[in-house]
């Protein structure tokens, strides 16, 4: 039995970073407010004092050069963990991610590799308005060459961040800003999960619910509600958006013959559409109903509390979607 302890999602991420920095001298952190401030989400609190300014580097507010310089440092042998305060600011670094980091290996015939992690936070629901509340992971997952990870639990966050840091490819590691307080059992010490493996978070037989990040929590809550009404839902956590491991989803769908995909991003051109398309392709003969999707509404997120909540997915909306097809 692996020894575990009960810690938060934030602590799990922090622990993974800390252990990797202790393990490998080439791992270092750079980003806005990661050092003296301790990280805007307090993930790197205490790092600056322990590891020093060489390895915990406060940067100017300059997303293009944060990701671009991390890319160059990675090509030249280091393992940078760059932090972009929230994924909303990563749009500024999109070019560096996809046109530099994401193609450096391929475009030069395999000569260079970019063992870089870009950590960032995602998600709405905190009344931050349109510019600070997006969940655009599918934008990044669109591009071959990048790896995109979005864990939902403290244990997954620890195991997958360690894997990301050890990966030789550029990884976007997406943390949900409303999951940081969640606590759960996390293996102590060197716990590394494979990248690109979906995980069945709850077994069931009537319907397959596919989700990632915060939406896993909502899907599990929906499954609780459904079970009281006699509907048994299986919940699958994608954990990684690229590479996307749909084998467990197909397997589950062939058992339940019905599926709902839940995603916080707006409803078009996204992960839920991708999963639904592939499921109908592979599982057509097993389909008893169309695959349903639950996403944020197709609007920029508003500030006003009630309005914002109306726009986001929640367990009730998932329950409704399931009931439409079961």
């Amino acid at each position: 039995m692996t020894e575990t302890k009960r810690i938060s999602y934030r602590e799990a991420i922090s622990e993974a970073l800390w252990e990797e920095m202790e393990r490998d001298e080439n791992v270092f952190i750079m980003g806005e407010e990661v050092g003296v401030w301790g990280g805007t989400y307090a993930v790197t609190r205490g790092f600056y004092d322990h590891f020093g300014e060489k390895r915990v580097r406060d940067t100017p507010i300059a997303e293009m050069v944060i990701v671009g310089a991390a890319t160059g440092a990675a090509m030249n042998g280091l393992r940078p963990v760059a932090e972009i305060m929230t994924i909303n600011f990563a749009f500024l670094a999109l070019d560096a991610m996809i046109n530099s980091a994401g193609v450096a290996h391929y475009m030069f015939g395999g000569q260079f590799s970019v063992p870089m992690v870009v950590r960032t936070t995602t998600g709405g629901g905190r009344q931050l308005g349109a510019t600070h509340s997006r969940s655009p992971e599918p934008v990044f997952a669109h591009f071959p060459g990048l790896t995109v990870i979005a864990p939902s639990t403290p244990a997954d966050a620890k195991g997958l961040l360690k894997a990301a840091i050890r990966s030789n490819d550029p990884v976007l590691f997406v943390e949900h800003s409303t999951l940081y307080q969640n606590r759960d059992e996390v293996p102590v010490g060197d716990y590394v999960l494979p990248i690109g493996k979906s995980d069945v978070k709850r077994e069931g037989s009537d319907v397959t619910i596919v989700a990632y990040s915060k939406m896993v929590e909502y899907s599990l809550a929906a499954a609780d509600i459904l079970s009281k009404e006699g509907i048994s839902a299986e919940v699958i956590d994608l954990r990684t958006l690229r590479p996307l491991d749909l084998d467990p989803v197909y397997e589950s769908f062939k058992k339940t013959n019905r599926g709902v995909v839940v995603e916080e991003a707006t409803p078009y051109y996204n992960v839920s559409g991708e999963v639904a398309a592939r499921v109908q392709d592979v599982c057509f003969d097993w389909m008893d109903a169309p695959v349903k999707r639950v996403n944020a509404l197709d609007v920029p997120l508003p500030y006003s509390r009630e309005l914002e909540q109306m726009a986001l997915p929640n367990p009730e909306k998932i329950v409704e979607a399931v009931k439409e097809i079961v």
């Binding site: 440092a73 450096a104 030069f108």
Partner: peptide, 21 residues
């Protein structure tokens, strides 16, 4: 280290190469 075709895109890479050294 290349040969990069997005105007200016390689400039932060240069900073990173130097940082690593």
């Amino acid at each position: 280290w290349g040969g990069w075709a997005i105007v200016g895109g390689h400039l932060p890479l240069a900073a990173g190469l130097a940082l690593a050294d």
